[in-house]
Amino acid sequence: MSQKYKVILAVVGLSLISTFWILWSSFNPVNEKALVKFISVGEILDSNSNERVRIGGIVADSSIIISPSNRMEVYFDIKEGASKLPVRFVGARPDLFKHGAEVIVEGAFFNGSFNADMLQTKCASRYEGDLRDAASYKLDDINI
């Protein structure tokens, strides 16, 4: 076989193997955290499966309860439209986690509540906020 074909064969082979590897990996994830379904609060309430999923929504008003025995543990509700999902999360909470924050949680549904092991917040609403609030918030107030 001429060298020219060897080179072409090697290049084609290398690209095919890598492409195959990429596609194969996307159907055979190495662990459950690699590829996670993103579903809505309504969908998870309807389904009974306890597979690992990711859910996004707003933290419902006055729903955050921090466990008195373990401050790492928090209970709150995520709402999306009319549906509400109780969530339990243990771990360090992101700085922007609070009522009304847009959050994403990942975990599994178990015994009527959602056990999350990942909690992320989206961008702070303050910086997308209404200027009217800023008007009432003057420099004099914050100078200490």
Partner: peptide
């Protein structure tokens, strides 16, 4: 269905 791709996937590949 929307499937989110996590860091483990990228690491694996």
């Amino acid at each position: 269905t929307k499937i989110t791709v996590g860091a483990p996937f990228f690491n694996q590949v």
